[in-house]
Computed example of a mutant assay.
Amino acid sequence: MDSDKYLEGQSMQRSPLFESNGFIYWKNRFETYVKSKGLDLWHVIIEGDFVPIQNNSKTKQSEAVPFEKQNDDLKKRLAKNNEAKMVIYNALPKKEYEGTFMCNTEKEIWKTLLITHQGNSQVKDKKIDILVQQYEQFVISKDESIDSAFARFNTIITSLKALDEGYSSKNYVRKFLRALHLKLRAKVTTIEELKDLTSLSPDELIGNLKDSSDEESSTSGSEDEEYAMAVKDFKKFFKRRGRFVRQSQNDKKIFQRSRDDKNSKSDRKCFRCGDLNHLIGECSKPPRDKNQRAFVGGS
């Protein structure tokens, strides 16, 4: 990286070192750093130098003030111009410095860096269109972790912000919730019911989703363990009682056959005398007529 070319032992208070391969990342960090040093510095970089002009109390008009007539407040204000330029130069390697050396103001330096590494307005608009499309089509797969999904999502929204384009925090939260897989729909419903999405930040959303996942995993693991123990005890019980169960089933079948035989015997009787203890072929009582004898013999 370009930052590797810098001398070691640099103060932690210096500007974030320029990275040509990660311009958007550097740009965001640089802006935050400059604003932490003073909002006047960032104003100079974006809007241009402060100029030695004051209102004339007599003419009521603005006019240039020569150096010898500048008061201390105006001099301090004008000093912000060089301070802002030094902040930028401290962040640039030699190659980038040479590319901006002909710029007269901090605003010109900043604009040159943006065009060189971010493109002109047309290129910028094209990049924005691509990122917006990625944002609108963002989805989370079934097996993707919350951390991995948010890392992809954060790259998109950070890139949009670096191009001065973006959505509200509320929009980010709702978009991420809609992108979650259907298996997490119960969690989404819970969050929507318990949280105020208008004030919920993306980081807080991720924390809630991860907490919910941890609780679900813990509960699921406990339930699985209880189920496994129940199945184990169930098998042990039937292993000990298997013989008794089989014997009971066999006894039931024997009892049923005995009952069926008894019922079938109770339904049979002699057609000649009506006795239940024998059939007509074993009856000793003589038939009433020849036709009945013939019928019995035929039978």
Rank of each mutant, 00 (worst) to 15 (best):
D72K: 13
D73K: 13
L74A: 01
L74E: 04
L74S: 01
K75Y: 03
K75A: 15
K76P: 15
R77A: 02
L78H: 10
L78K: 13
K80S: 12
N81K: 11
N81W: 03
N82P: 07
E83L: 11
A84P: 02
A84R: 06
K85E: 02
K85F: 09
M86R: 09
V87Q: 04
Y89A: 00
A91Y: 00
A91L: 06
L92P: 00
K94D: 10
Y97Q: 14
G99H: 02
T100H: 11
T100M: 02
T100Y: 05
T100G: 09
M102E: 14
M102D: 15
C103I: 09
C103T: 01
N104Y: 03
T105A: 04
E106L: 05
E106H: 12
E106G: 07
E108V: 05
I109F: 05
W110Y: 10
K111G: 01
I115W: 08
I115N: 11
T116V: 04
T116I: 11
T116E: 05
Q118S: 15
G119E: 01
S121K: 15
S121Y: 12
S121N: 12
V123S: 06
K124F: 00
D125M: 15
D125I: 08
K126Q: 09
I128N: 05
I128F: 05
D129K: 10
I130W: 14
I130Y: 13
I130K: 13
V132P: 00
Q133E: 11
Q134C: 03
E136D: 13
Q137V: 08
K142S: 09
K142A: 12
D143N: 00
D143T: 09
I146P: 02
I146N: 01
D147T: 09
S148C: 06
A149T: 05
F150L: 08
A151W: 08
F153W: 01
I156M: 09
I156R: 03
T158H: 07
S159A: 03
L160I: 03
L160P: 02
K161L: 14
A162K: 00
D164M: 07
S168V: 14
S168W: 10
S169H: 11
S169C: 14
K170M: 07
K170Q: 08
V173G: 03
R174E: 09
R174T: 08
K175W: 07
F176I: 01
F176L: 01
L177F: 02
R178I: 14
A179E: 08
A179D: 04
H181N: 08
K183C: 09
L184F: 07
L184G: 06
R185A: 15
R185W: 06
R185H: 10
A186Y: 05
K187C: 07
K187V: 06
T189K: 11
T189H: 05
T190S: 10
T190K: 05
I191K: 00
L194E: 09
L194N: 09
L194T: 04
L197I: 04
T198H: 08
S199A: 12
S201Y: 04
S201T: 13
S201G: 03
P202A: 12
P202S: 11
D203T: 11
L205N: 00
G207W: 02
G207Y: 04
N208L: 13
